[in-house]
Design a protein around this nucleic acid. Structure first.
Lengths: 136, 136
DNA sequence: ATAAATGCAAAGCATTTGCAGTAAA
DNA sequence: TTTACTGCAAATGCTTTGCATTTAT
């Protein structure tokens, strides 16, 4: 397993088969899966696994900073194993979420300086993906 | 009632006291309230009102484009009566959400052109608000 | 009169939690 | 052998829905 997801294991963090399977599914995954997506993928490929464990593991990983909890979807939480700062394209038709790793210059409004100290930002681009554009 | 929220009323849309009270609370509101916030504020100031009606009304208004449903908070939906394109500051300590109406120039990454047509964007700035900065 | 909204209570999902059994360390 | 994880089932929290009643038009 690659460096990135090893971070998930710290002191007092056990390497169980369930967790390894979840991490294995997340490794390099760009689908921004929900807890249910994780559950379905892992139970299909590997062995039985409970929802409670999926949630426990995702929460532990999020707290450890190994995965990012995305609040892009109003209906459910989604998880991103890529913790490098990046942005997202959201297709308004199929709701697909696509990563943007390219650097996006974001101007900082003047009003911020006075009343807010900014550490980071996240840009959501709304539009149509190529697949949905063809269907029009 | 001002122009903006009159849009909420179209053909076959009834002007009930409950809806007027909800619209009245939303008018000019910059708190990005949740359904529960709406419920509490209206029942306190006006008359009894059911949660079902709050949800029905908010959904109808969102569908009509009179309010924007925000997916900024992982725990619950929040609603923004300001439908002009604008951005948000999110305080990582108190979770307060502050509007940014100032124009924020956002560069469009090259990778987008090929595989995605962009209609709009939304920037979330993460940081600490003035109140929380003082507490540090 | 008609079509739509209200409100209650029940149902539906996503997520969390308590706890007994199980497995990593 | 101790500490933490798993999994079940029950519980929770937000949101939706069915239905009988009420109300705006």
């Amino acid at each position: 397993m690659k460096q990135a997801l090893k971070k998930g294991f710290g002191k007092g963090f056990k390497r169980t088969p369930q967790r390894l399977a979840i991490l294995n599914y997340l490794e390099g995954n760009t689908l921004h899966p929900s807890a249910e997506d994780v559950y379905r993928a892992v139970t299909k490929k590997d062995f039985p696994l409970s929802f409670a464990t999926v949630y426990n593991t995702l929460n532990a990983l999020a707290q450890a900073g190994t995965v990012r909890e995305l609040t892009i979807d109003a209906e459910r939480k989604r998880y991103d194993p890529n913790t490098e700062p990046h942005h997202h394209l959201i297709c308004l038709k199929c709701r697909k979420i696509i990563d943007v790793f390219e650097d996006v210059p974001v101007g900082k409004p003047k009003c911020i300086e006075k009343k807010f100290s900014v550490f980071g930002n996240h840009v959501e681009f709304y539009g149509h993906c190529s697949a949905c554009r063809k269907k029009c």
